[in-house]
Design a protein around this nucleic acid. Structure first.
Lengths: 228, 228
DNA sequence: GTATAAAACTGATAAATATCAGGGTATATA
DNA sequence: TATATACCCTGATATTTATCAGTTTTATAC
């Protein structure tokens, strides 16, 4: 099994603050899970026994709303951590994590993380910075959800997928989502999302081929996101 | 000027993790500000020179959206901290803080907080726990904004004001907001918020007298929040 | 107290979005 | 290959919400 101290992925998260000794200790008790597309990493209300560090693949983090829709709150990819919040506050998870692609995920037991949080202040601060950043993003999402139209939010989401995820060789969006997932990201009915995608296509802003989306006119998409 | 080590308010936030010596040091360099209702504590894009600890009064935290509306993201009262996020990530603020009542707020210089964050791990963890909790709340707000109707969100907001803020002697909501502020909390037009309030009043769920709101039927309000 | 401005309210209408119903298309499986 | 199933798409319609225009009420300043 590969070793944490040689794993490049930790550079993207707070684990980079750990010393070599700490990494070696964690390396010994971590396990690497292979998770197939569509499988659950954890579900809402679960009592997590550790945190997850994503080595490969993308997952969606969602929460069931009372009307039965599964709102996607964010997407997490290589280098992302899952479950720190539940561990820190010793609470059951409030969110569900589902693989959108085949994934490799490392599981680190709770006790090890808590030990390092208490003994390595730089690590605590690293986690803190990550969380401060997540909170800023969450605030932005709240404003967008509250104030923007569905059309604006779809445009923003496409731009988000464009800038934050790897593209295919022919420059299309690399992360392929179902129409339902897209709708659940922007908080609308699947039919509405489909209609707006067709609308964007008709305007020549994007092209569609099944789940493949190609952004043809980024500037126009930005204008739509701003409300024009 | 009153001293931090005797201030009861710190029990509500991470400052409770500081040692007596640390508190005494902070006490010497903190300043207490008196802020009148309607005044700004800080605005979006400002470079904060420290954090604020609220001793008395309530303020709104908001963010301007591109369409010119000021979305209220949360309300903070006695014991709340402001500005930690900007200090931790060394960024300009992404939010604006405005007093909703006459307030007393203590300002603690950035350097002092950073010193304690680096030297007292329990303090870092305290801040971390607070932030983890904020993040959980933010996730819930996102789901509500994305999936619930304006009517449901208004009902939730009234219940939130009911459970989280002091009531008046005659059991009315103690925090009085303008109709515009209410609309900006739930993310709708002021007229829509007014119409729905009248609607709730007509149904006998609440009574209205100017800015005074009295919840007459909590159970019914909870049902409305759930979508009935 | 009166003047003035700001906030609260109401109605009419337009625009955005959800819902329901049905058909088409791709994809997996036997 | 056939069949089932999930996903995608479209139209018609209902509902929700925003916008605009105007009136009334309340708060504020003189």
């Amino acid at each position: 099994m590969s070793k944490c101290e040689h794993c490049i992925v930790r550079q993207f998260n707070a684990l980079k603050e750990l010393t070599t000794e700490e990494l070696e200790r964690i390396s010994k008790c971590k396990s690497t899970l292979s998770i197939k597309k569509g499988e659950l990493i954890f579900s809402e209300g679960e009592h997590l026994k550790g945190i997850y560090c994503i080595k490969k693949g993308v997952c969606k983090i969602s929460k069931m709303s009372e009307n039965g829709k599964d709102q996607i709150i964010h997407l997490i990819q290589k280098g992302g951590l899952l479950g720190e919040r539940s561990i820190i506050n010793d609470e059951v998870t409030n969110l569900k994590a589902t693989a959108l692609q085949d994934m490799l995920v490392c599981f680190i037991p709770k006790e090890e993380i808590l030990k390092d949080l208490h003994e390595n202040n730089e690590f605590s601060l690293g986690i803190l910075k990550g969380m401060a950043n997540s909170l800023k993003n969450a605030d932005n999402v709240i404003v967008n959800m509250a104030q923007k139209t569905v059309k604006q939010r779809l445009a923003e989401t496409l731009l988000f997928l464009d800038t934050n995820f790897e593209k295919t060789e022919d420059n299309k969006l690399g992360l392929q989502l179902s129409r339902e997932d897209i709708a659940n990201m922007i908080g609308t009915a699947t039919e509405s999302a489909i209609r707006l995608l067709s609308n964007f296509k008709k305007k020549g802003v994007i092209s569609l081929k099944g789940k493949e989306i190609n952004i043809l006119n980024t500037e126009k998409l930005k204008k739509i996101a701003r409300g024009f």
